[in-house]
Design a protein around this nucleic acid. Sequence first.
RNA 1: GCCGGGGUAGCUCAACGGUUAGAGCGGCGGUUUCAUAAGCCGUAGGUUGCCGGUUCGAGUCCGGCCCCCGGCACCA
Length: 513
Amino acid sequence: MTKFYITTAIDYPNASPHIGTAYEKIGADARARWRRLCGDDVYFLMGNDENSQKVAEKAQELGLDPLAYCDEMERKFRQAWSRLSLSFDRFIRTTEAAHHRGAREIFRRLLKRGDVYRGMYKSWYCVGCESRKTDKDLVNGKCANHPNRDLEWVEEENWFFRLTAYRDRIREVVKNTDFVEPGIRRNEVLGVLEEGLEDISISRAKTKWGVPVPDDPDHVIYVWFDALVNYITGVGFPDGPDFGRWWPCDVHVIGKDITRFHCIIWPAMLLGADLPLPKKVFAHGFVYLSGEKISKSGKRLDPAKAADRFGGDPLRYFLLREIAFDNDGDFTWEKFVERYNGELANELGNLLNRVVNMAEKNLGGVFEKPPAPLPQDAALREKLLGLADRVAPHYDRFEFHFALAQIWDAVRQANRYLDETRPWTAAKEGRRDAVAASLYNAAEALRIIAVLASPVIPATADRIGEQIGIGPLSTARLETVRAWGGVPGGTRVRRAAPLFPRLDKVPEAEEFA
RNA sequence: GCCGGGGUAGCUCAACGGUUAGAGCGGCGGUUUCAUAAGCCGUAGGUUGCCGGUUCGAGUCCGGCCCCCGGCACCA
């Protein structure tokens, strides 16, 4: 069985997740679910990045022990993620002892090789950014991103990582392979590599919160450095029995703002530790809120609240249908309602409703294998049986918007099939065979549509399966949609509430902040 | 400043140098009645940012210009 190991960035738990964070996880989840559908043995890793000064600060602000605070935040994150049906296999926390051990092991390996050394670290430091600031980064002597905070002048002996030693090898990989996707990010990374690198400081002396540097109790490993290591400790590095099975990772899903860490620093760390590089780093775009950048505008959209109200699937669907995953996109409630009503309620939800209703009214609620073919069958079958092949390349390239466009093309065709075969007329005319054939084929179309859309809308796929009487479909296998006739004759429909009740007004953004 | 991406219908976006530049949404009109006042069909709407060039032929290639957006940060 082919293995597929996929990760997302781990999150600072100093605030609850927002729509942008959710976007990344949803995209990764869709890919993970797609690979499971294809039969891969999938390992999907997510988690929280807890060894940060910001986290310690926040905990102190609340009068909590940092670890207790992190425990609480883990609950919040898990709750939010569960509302979005994220199917991660493991949720890692970088405060775990096993992670600390792995991070220290990496540090030791690089030290042994001579690529970790002592040096002097002098600069302005912004606690908000958790990063060094050079003079050109300053605006009026303050950090541009955190103008309300005072900068600290930091001057201390630190441990450094000889990043410069790895530049050429990394450049070769980035240049000659599709290690970094999409192409635009690859070019940017290449640009950085061409301009040249500096060695980086990888420890901090001022804080006790974090992973202690081996044999140097006065320093902790810089949060970024230990955070990256989660991708290997999450599968058992250094000596877990499954480490060799999962690593190297098939794809790291990250935001476009952190390519430098994943495409340059992380590979350098791995090369230094004699570990294989991940196969791919995929950098997704950003979600804007009504045209404004989330971080700058201060606008928020709490995905858990939105999912509470509308369900996780509509949010997942909207984000992956509206926005190309490698691009930036805009969330507005107007657009959300438009797609929700048009595509989810009217086209898909109503299609199911039509079929289930007519089956109840005219067939006693039981699907029968088509007693006789209808002239419109061939076109419908051709469309649906070819759908898996049309959708597959898109899912595998994170082109969820294209995959969904293909699937909805089939949804429209199924609606058209009903209009053309007119089972309601056939019923009135007493042509029971025609009614049975039409509804059976429409149910088949729904089955295939549900399975192929399940990576994006898993809960809906299950609900469709329940209503047409064949049980959950989000855990189906791809082979089942390459053949017609998956709904057994004699299957009894189970009518339930509409999948997506129509929304009659545009929600107020404030309700979900 | 340097590097990169982009300006196409009211909106969001498609279109290997090759018929008459397409699709969805929105608008307008029609039709159906099984269904969540849903579905289906049809239609209007474009000087492809501007100027020049190459070519039998340019949204597409070349040069110049104007706008927008990213990257050049120890950014989760």
